[in-house]
Design a binder for these strands. Structure first.
Lengths: 330, 330
DNA sequence: TTTTCCATAGAAAGCGTTATCTTAAAGCCC
DNA sequence: GGGCTTTAAGATAACGCTTTCTATGGAAAA
């Protein structure tokens, strides 16, 4: 087993086998070919641990996400996975349950020597990013995606949150709605602010004054969407349209609206963000902003691998365009 | 860095440090305490690759699943993750895209020396399990969950598919439905047969003769549910209730039914399987069979770890109970 | 021909642990 | 108190690779 066997069979040294196997320069093409074909014949697999130990590179990428039972994140993971596999990396999964304490615990316990790099989407209550900074200082490259910490100098990949929110709000305006509320995300998140700003900007550009009571911050669940929506209709001044920070909340809002006897899509317009398959299940089908989740996963992973291969590769931010998907809720 | 540093600081040998760190027997409690506290102080993390190389155990568990963008599987993963972390294991993810070719490719390429064991749910078109048998013969323990290969002698964990299907069908019967159709899964899968048999058995026990044209095999998607449902209503003999192999197909069926102008929940009853959150989004809310997905993940992982720690641990099969969740579609 | 250089390959020293084999000191028995 | 076991710890050889340094033969240059 191992390169030793190949070396003996071919009567060459282990060093040569090692070099031949990862197309090094100073090895004769003929020798190389012999090694390659024998390796294939013997179904040789290099011992990852040995090579990781000797070379320092593990070909493992860690992925930290708040949840996995969620269309957006699981799609991102699929994208990461595809890119990783194609470049010979494996992905190791860490789920923070959207909880900072658990996130810190995970990060501190992860054996950074087991990972070449990290892909992370922070949890909603993440206020400090010290644990990530420590890791980066130790030389572990990190690429943040979707839920990014605004003030960290690291590569980031996300959808155009501002533009998407602008698109959504503007669509509502085009359709004649004027009293537009926003079901925002948790207040600490960068993504929440971006989408909020997109909303505010669209309103302003259309000359519509914004009503602070029309903005409700809360988590990302369907239930929170339902609750916030009910709050919106408590007062005298009631909105005629809702832009939700994600589809789950939009769905919650639609359900609340329907229970209140409103005709969604006519009397009141609702637009979401993500393009989760549930948009096709709720009635009326949800108009939403499509996020390129798979592509975000792919590109984050590509970027991370660049950082891994070249430690002096400079941090960059990638923003992918979102698109409007018109359905029946507006 | 490393145990060497601790050894030097404490003026003891590396061997002693190594032993002290994983509570070995022949080390003085006092020495051990010193080592432990210094290790903590220095925030020492053992190099995983080195220990994996030396000991042969990597503390990595591979998980092979068809999809991740799916409530059931992502919940199972959360369960696996929780158990794995608590026992000091990491999980490495492999997504087969429900494609046998890709699954084989993944399995053959995975460096089994990098994994202590494997947790797998096979893809629908898996006909041969040779690749898994090879792996098991190489001494890699495998636990199958949910989608299991019937004829392999390995540990298996799943929900009570037969009982769940019986429960579902029987519920329909109790509610007065008599012409009950079944939207089955892909025909090769063990799970498909189990659920089909549960359905058949409930019918038989109630003295209802089964109508072969009321059984439609197809994949697990919402769209396939919709298509199969339409086929069901093509002929003269039309069912008055539908039991679907999963919630996605049940939702597709409900949508088809509604488009055909039927009143779901009265005129025709629909019951699903899984208890996916979409059951609360479709109207009427879907009555379904709840699967203990998180628990399946947890127990699969527990079982695998037992196999890892004790190679002669004998294979066993665990079946977890499903429960009926009554909502409005029946 | 002699010298220099390049292409190719071997030898051997790690990488940071674990594990086996010893050794040293201390405790125990009759 | 001499042999025996027990307890604690050191020395050292793996583990299977990567990598650096060195060696060799032949081609190119002089």
């Amino acid at each position: 087993m191992g390169m030793k066997l190949i070396a003996e069979k071919l009567e060459i040294s282990i060093s040569t086998v090692s070099r031949a196997l990862r197309d090094a320069h100073d090895v004769n093409p003929v020798t190389r070919q012999k090694v390659m074909s024998l390796a294939k014949e013997l179904n040789f697999k290099p011992n990852k641990n040995a090579s990781a130990l000797a070379s320092g590179s593990t070909k493992n990428i860690g992925v930290v996400i708040p949840f996995i039972t969620n269309y957006y994140f699981s799609t991102v993971i699929s994208g990461i996975q595809e890119e990783a596999i194609s470049q010979g990396y494996q992905i190791v999964l860490y789920i923070s349950n959207d909880d900072l304490a658990r996130e810190i615990q995970l990060i501190n316990n992860l054996e950074s020597n087991n990972l070449d790099g990290l892909l992370v989407s922070i949890s909603s209550n993440t206020t400090s990013t010290q644990h990530y900074e420590d890791l980066m200082n130790e030389g572990c490259p990190i690429v943040f995606f979707d839920r990014i910490p605004a003030h960290l100098n690291a590569s980031k990949v996300m959808q155009g949150d501002f533009e998407g929110a602008y698109l959504a709000t503007n669509h509502l305006i085009q359709k004649g709605y004027r009293k537009i509320a926003h079901l925002a995300g948790p207040s600490g998140l960068d993504l929440t602010n971006e989408r909020l700003n997109g909303y505010l900007c669209a309103l302003k550009d259309a000359g519509i004054s914004n009503n602070p009571s029309f903005i409700k911050y809360a988590g990302f669940t369907r239930n929170e969407g339902e609750v916030s929506c009910r709050e919106l209709y408590q007062g005298a001044d009631q909105p005629d349209a809702i832009f939700a920070v994600n589809d789950l909340k939009a769905v919650g809002a639609i359900q609340a609206l329907k229970k209140m006897g409103m005709r969604v899509g006519e009397q009141v317009g609702v637009i979401g963000f993500t393009d989760d398959p549930i948009a096709l299940i709720i009635e009326p089908n949800l108009t939403t902003i499509h996020e390129p989740a798979f592509e975000i996963g792919k590109q984050s992973c590509q970027l991370l691998i660049k950082h891994i291969k070249n430690p002096s590769f400079e941090a960059r931010t990638i923003s992918l365009a979102c698109t409007l998907v018109e359905r029946d809720s507006v």
